[in-house]
Nucleic acid binder design. Structure first.
Lengths: 136, 136
DNA sequence: AGACTCGTGCAATTGAGTTGCATTATTTAT
DNA sequence: ATAAATAATGCAACTCAATTGCACGAGTCT
């Protein structure tokens, strides 16, 4: 269990530290997207800045992706597929519940998108809001 | 021209003030989404807080919509269709250019989205990033 | 015109995001 | 196993967007 966490870090050329192991494990355990504030509440033993930099290093190495939102703190979700610093593939749908506020990464993939000629697509983010299965 | 601006405000039960007229006109003139900072730069004569509350009142009355983004200041776009405080219909695509940073509201509509059973959709936001027609 | 309601400006606060630097821990090579 | 190299951590401090309270001024209704 712990060793699989470590291999995630090793595979992404990141040093193995307590903070990083705890954060990855927390993301694996939770189904929902998490904000830096969530991590601060969960892990009082780590400094805000350490968690901030942990999230950033996970973003850069493609372990996490950042989910666009309208207000409040940024939220992060585990990448379902293999992401590299060069290429992020986020073809799953983000669902934001208007009741409980949680943001989930659904397994459903985003449909094909067409943009006018002259526009070149590099990434697509689909955020659906409504009522989640728990609150319904 | 000016009277059509006023009717927009009247239709949404908002009082007619210089600041609101200027802001609406600016949004109508610009094709891109705008941030509060953009308005502050354009309209030095109005206080930051006034512009902040102007944006908020426009949001509440359905004149503008807020565009989810990953970082930086929130951006706002004119609602293409008739939006009310109760129901916002944002079925157009937002395109964020990774070169110039501008966010546009495209006319293209978002494709149908499917979510797992138990989930109820209230709104959909599709943000595509890449290179815009100007930068391509 | 007068009363009422709402918008505005100023001052101040919060909170997320970010950086520099000294210290500590992890890794690599000996 | 240990030392050198390199990276992570904690602390302090800072920036900036977002937000609130309050007094004042402008818009609206009869």
């Amino acid at each position: 269990m712990k060793s699989s966490l470590k291999s995630i870090l090793k595979d992404h050329n990141l040093r193995i530290t307590d903070c990083r192991l705890d954060v990855i494990q927390f993301f694996l355990k939770e189904r929902n997207a998490l904000s830096q504030g969530d991590l601060e509440n969960k892990f009082k033993q780590y400094d805000r800045v350490t968690l901030y930099r942990t999230l950033n290093s996970f973003l850069a190495s493609g372990i996490l992706h950042k989910i666009p939102n309208e207000n409040g703190a940024a939220t992060y979700g585990l990448c379902h597929h293999t992401c590299t610093p060069q290429r992020h593939v986020h073809d799953h749908i983000h669902f934001k519940c208007n009741t409980c506020g949680q943001i989930e990464c659904l397994d459903d993939t985003v449909p094909n998108v067409s943009v006018p000629s002259g526009y070149q697509i590099e990434g697509v983010n689909l955020i659906v809001d409504g009522i989640c299965a728990n609150c319904n």
